[in-house]
Write a protein that binds this DNA or RNA. Structure first.
Lengths: 203, 203, 203, 203
DNA sequence: TATGAATGAGAATTCATTCAT
DNA sequence: CATGAATGAATTCTCATTCAT
């Protein structure tokens, strides 16, 4: 419904704030309404129910994130640089949109309800960007062929995601997104073992 | 509370099942009681409230997991083998205790409520097992020194954890725990780039 | 809360009936809702909780009683007649509003909870109407000066109140409010001992 | 059951404390048990249920109070002195046994439940001690005959009782029991109007 | 479209009472 | 007699959702 209305977006934005603050189950619809400066009932003109707010919020956000990431990746050739870019962009985004990151991280995943009943295509697409990079690297002979892209994508995403969770849930933050991104992509690209062809960067 | 009785454990086990099936917020205390074959009120002789069931469950489980993992790691010297073992043991455990894994994954680690309000020492200890391996490897000159253990531990754990989430939340399972563990530790140890000293697949 | 609606008053009136019938602790909120013909939840739009219903009920009633009593007393000069009037009005009110009287009598007083935690200003004001009459009488030389108004007010109110309790809690009623009021004020004004200047009234 | 057992009395005494502290409805049987240093179940060997504790407590106490008051009154001839004695003894007792007084006052006498359902003979006997004094005074020509003893007894008791309530529920206490007793009996005996034969203050 | 008062289903928790030991 | 772990009925209050205005 009316996805472009001003109120639709206000409600989404309000929901991001409230869900991040309270968590999905402890957030009240009336609180979102208040934050969005609309009446409680108005929310039900734009969303079917509370669940639908969360799902819509997620889809709208992932749509944007996905488009952005695709665009940025398309301008690069080197699979290694793509991996590095993915990490950097992902963690910057988390850094810039803390509330949104928290909701996506915590609330969407938490609801086994959603993850089980709801086919999370956008998220799968996002993961597959990584698998595509890996496959591309393998085709180009840059990446080793004994790594399964379907596992590598989860491993790489999981690594970034755990870093995000740490930022999102703890108040302090020991490492900058740049450093974290660089470290994580370095581990993935060259591994923990010293690599003759790839001496550590910047040293 | 009187932890002597077997009722305490029966309730914990019932809670694992019910939380895994329904999620924390959709699980009813009376359902846990029924599953544990005790009266509703009995639960409150052993736990302060619903939250306390979840937290206790987590602590009891992490205690055991932590002790087991420590024991297994202590019998190995080689940091590379330790990384491989960690991955294998972690994923086997998830495989063996699906319900428990799901509850820990989804309901506790993903819960803003619990992760924000409650100091999760056991989990931190678990993560630090990884940091310790990395540090040890660096000290022995086996691992590169430009990797920050505090980031590596999260990256490695996150990779395993995302793999688990996939198993736990999807019904099908494309890869065996053994293969996943082996792949993930390979990526971490040697990276995506072909490594002259470490040809693929243990040859 | 929105006191404009007639629902507020309907709930108060329903609560008076139900509390009188069952007592505060044995009254169910759902019963009050039913009696007021509103949904259970509606009560919580107008009152914070069950306690608040009782307190609000009390304040609303005392407000009215206090205003009425003040108005009636202000039209009289003679302190003796004021004492007589107070007794008459108080007991008539009890007679006319049995349920309300019972709730005020029994439920509010009973709750040590309420009487201890809740500063019962309206009731104190009501008592002080009596102290004022006594003081006025002493100033005018009509009442003896060796009586402490702060004790006399409690003695007089207590006498009326015990009479009320008797009516409210027993089903039968041996004496009319008029006779009781007249007897009690007579005792207070002239005492038990035959008084030369004040021969018994009406004989 | 076993009214003379040590435990019976310990439970009664514990109940007095707990009911005074929390009120009947907010008092927990287990709390009484704890205070009495017996097991929860033991209470049910001596009392049928929670109500029965309150009623028994009341009967035991009234029995004693009644016997004491009767004994003291029987040693005096003058009805005026008897009135004075009654007031003094009643208020002293309240003073000495605060908890007990509060429970009788607030929890029993103010309880619709108990006062409606339960025929309160001991209390009626106590009130009738006053009626008897009045009647005796009237027979001896000391008290005026136009006062109805059945009303006077409630008025006098109510006056004392309101004074007690004040002490019991407020923490401070403005007047000593002696002064209050003396004032209240003075009002009852001679009234508010200056009385030629009875100048103030016992002269 | 927008409102927000009203609804009422639903669930956690308490605690008097029981009964096996 | 005494215990206290276990029971489960019972009730307040919340909050997503509706619908008359």
């Amino acid at each position: 419904m009316k996805r472009n209305s001003d109120k639709y977006n206000r409600i989404i934005e309000a929901a991001v704030k409230v869900f991040a603050r309270k968590g999905f189950y402890n957030a009240k619809v009336s609180e979102i309404a208040k934050e969005a400066k609309v009446a409680d009932g108005t929310i039900y003109l734009y969303f079917q129910n509370k669940d639908d707010i969360l799902i819509s919020l997620f889809e709208v956000a992932m749509e944007k994130i996905l488009r952005n990431m695709k665009g940025r990746l398309s301008r690069i050739e080197d699979p290694i640089k793509k991996i590095e870019l993915f990490a950097a962009v992902h963690l910057e985004l988390v850094e810039k949109s803390k509330d949104l990151a928290e909701v996506i991280q915590v609330e969407i995943r938490q609801s086994s309800k959603f993850m089980k009943e709801y086919r999370n295509d956008k998220f799968i697409d996002y993961l597959n960007l990584i698998a595509d990079i890996v496959r591309e690297g393998q085709a180009k002979g840059v990446f080793r062929k004994d790594i399964v892209p379907g596992i590598a994508k989860r491993a790489f995403f999981g690594a970034l995601d755990e870093m995000s969770r740490y930022w999102v849930l703890s108040t302090r933050r020991s490492y900058s997104p740049q450093i974290a991104a660089e470290q994580i992509s370095r581990i993935f690209v060259t591994g923990l073992i010293p690599h003759p062809d790839h001496p550590p960067e910047g040293e």
